Deep mutational scan, measured.
Amino acid sequence: TEKEKEVKRLAKERGLSPDQVRELAQRAGFSPDQAKQIADEFA
């Protein structure tokens, strides 16, 4: 999704850790499970 792409782009730009990616995703409105899946891509 657009929102997911945006979260991943920000995460890459900022060099976020997987935990930070998960927090960012949840703040963007993703469920905890979705946020974990997104964060796992950065693990």
Rank of each mutant, 00 (worst) to 15 (best):
R22Q: 12
L10D: 05
K36S: 11
E41S: 12
A11M: 01
E41R: 07
I38D: 02
T1I: 13
L16H: 04
Q34D: 08
K12S: 09
A43K: 10
A28Q: 08
E23A: 11
Q20F: 04
Q20D: 08
R14S: 09
K36M: 13
K3V: 11
F42Y: 15
V21I: 10
E4R: 15
V7R: 02
L10C: 08
F30C: 04
E4C: 07
V7E: 01
A11D: 01
K12I: 09
T1G: 14
A39D: 01
V21A: 06
R14M: 15
G15K: 10
D19E: 13
A35F: 03
E6M: 11
Q26L: 15
A39C: 05
A43R: 12
L24V: 04
E23V: 11
D40N: 10
G29K: 00
K36V: 07
E6Q: 10
R14W: 15
R27G: 09
E13N: 05
D40I: 12
S31G: 10
E23N: 06
Q37G: 06
L16R: 02
V7W: 05
T1K: 15
E41I: 06
F42P: 01
P18R: 12
A43P: 04
T1H: 13
R14G: 12
P18T: 09
E2K: 09
G15Q: 12
K3G: 09
I38M: 06
Q37E: 07
K5F: 10
D19K: 12
A43T: 08
D19Q: 13
E4T: 10
L16G: 03
K3P: 08
L24S: 03
L24W: 06
K3T: 08
V21Y: 02
E6Y: 12
A25V: 02
G29Q: 01
E4D: 06
R9M: 08
L24F: 07
L10N: 04
A35Q: 04
D19C: 05
L10G: 03
I38T: 02
Q37R: 15
Q20L: 06
A25F: 04
Q37I: 12
R9D: 06
E41L: 06
Q34P: 01
P18W: 15
D40V: 09
D40G: 05
A43F: 14
L16Y: 13
A25L: 09
G29P: 00
L10E: 08
Q37P: 00
R9F: 04
K5E: 13
L24R: 02
Q20Y: 03
D33T: 13
A43E: 14
S17N: 14
K3N: 07
V7I: 15
A35V: 04
K3S: 07
Q26C: 11
R14A: 14
P32L: 13
R22Y: 15
G15E: 07
G29A: 01
E2N: 10
F42S: 04
R22A: 13
E2M: 13
A11T: 01
F30T: 00
F42R: 03
L10H: 06
E4N: 05
D19V: 08
T1S: 14
Q34T: 06
A39E: 03
P18V: 11
E4H: 09
D33S: 13
D19A: 14
K12Q: 10
S17A: 10
A35M: 02
Q34H: 11
A43D: 08
A11Y: 03
Q26H: 07
F42V: 11
D19G: 07
L10V: 12
V21C: 14
R9P: 00
G15M: 08
Q20P: 00
K8H: 06
P18S: 09
K3I: 11
A25R: 00
L16K: 02
K36A: 13
V7M: 06
R9H: 05
Q37M: 11
I38C: 00
K12E: 07
K36Q: 15
A28E: 11
R27D: 12
S17Q: 08
E2G: 09
E6H: 08
K8R: 11
K8V: 09
E13L: 14
K5W: 12
K12A: 11
K5I: 12
I38H: 03
D33E: 14
K36Y: 07
I38L: 11
R9W: 04
K36P: 01
E6R: 07
P18Y: 15
D33K: 11
Q20N: 03
A28H: 15
R27W: 13
F42M: 09
K12D: 04
R27K: 14
Q34V: 11
A35T: 03
G29H: 01
E2L: 12
L24N: 00
Q34G: 03
A11C: 00
E13A: 11
R14Y: 15
K5N: 13
E23K: 07
D33W: 09
G29T: 00
L10M: 09
E2Q: 10
I38G: 02
R22E: 13
Q37N: 10
D40W: 14
K8E: 03
G15N: 13
A25P: 00
A39G: 04
G15W: 05
A28P: 00
A28C: 14
I38Y: 03
A35W: 03
E13Q: 08
L16P: 01
Q26E: 15
E6I: 09
K8L: 14
R27L: 15
V21L: 12
P32A: 13
P32Q: 10
P32W: 11
E4K: 14
V7G: 01
L24H: 03
R9L: 07
E13Y: 06
R9N: 05
F42H: 05
T1N: 13
P18K: 11
A43I: 11
R22D: 05
L24Q: 03
Q37F: 07
I38A: 01
A25M: 04
V7N: 03
R9Q: 10
K12M: 09
E2I: 10
A28F: 15
K3D: 06
Q37H: 12
A11G: 13
T1Y: 13
A43V: 12
K8C: 03
K3W: 12
S17D: 10
A35D: 00
G15Y: 05
E2R: 07
K8Q: 04
L10I: 15
V7D: 02
F42I: 13
G15I: 03
Q20T: 03
K8M: 09
K12Y: 12
G29Y: 00
K8D: 02
G29W: 01
A11I: 03
V21N: 00
S31L: 07
T1W: 13
A28L: 15
K36W: 13
K36R: 13
E13T: 06
A35G: 02
E2V: 12
K36N: 12
K8T: 04
L24E: 05
E41M: 08
E13S: 06
S31D: 11
E41D: 14
A28Y: 15
E23P: 00
Q34E: 14
Q34W: 05
G15P: 01
A35H: 00
F42N: 03
K12G: 06
E4L: 15
R14P: 03
K3Q: 11
F42L: 11
Q26P: 03
E23G: 05
Q20E: 14
Q34Y: 11
K12P: 01
R14V: 07
E41Q: 11
Q26F: 08
E41A: 13
F30R: 00
Q37L: 12
A28N: 09
A11P: 00
S31C: 03
R22L: 14
L24G: 00
G29E: 01
A25D: 00
Q26W: 05
A35E: 03
P18D: 05
R9K: 11
A43Q: 10
K5Q: 14
P32Y: 13
G15T: 04
D19N: 10
S17L: 08
E4P: 03
A39K: 02
T1L: 14
G15S: 08
E4G: 08
I38W: 02
A39R: 02
V21F: 02
K3L: 15
E2F: 11
E23T: 08
G29D: 01
S17F: 07
K36T: 13
D33F: 07
P18I: 12
P18N: 07
K3M: 14
I38K: 01
E4Y: 15
A28D: 03
E13K: 08
L24I: 05
E6F: 10
E13W: 06
Q26R: 12
S31I: 03
E41V: 06
G15A: 07
G15R: 09
R9V: 04
A25E: 00
I38Q: 02
L16I: 03
T1A: 13
E4F: 12
A43W: 12
Q20M: 06
P32I: 11
Q20S: 05
F30K: 00
A35L: 02
S31M: 05
Q37W: 07
K5A: 15
F30L: 08
I38N: 02
K8I: 13
K12N: 08
L16N: 03
F30H: 01
G15C: 08
D40M: 13
D33G: 09
P18M: 11
E4S: 14
G29V: 00
D40H: 13
Q34F: 07
A39N: 02
L10K: 07
S31F: 04
Q26M: 15
G29L: 01
R9I: 05
K5V: 10
A11Q: 00
P32R: 08
S17G: 07
E13C: 10
A39L: 03
A35N: 01
Q26I: 15
I38R: 01
Q34C: 08
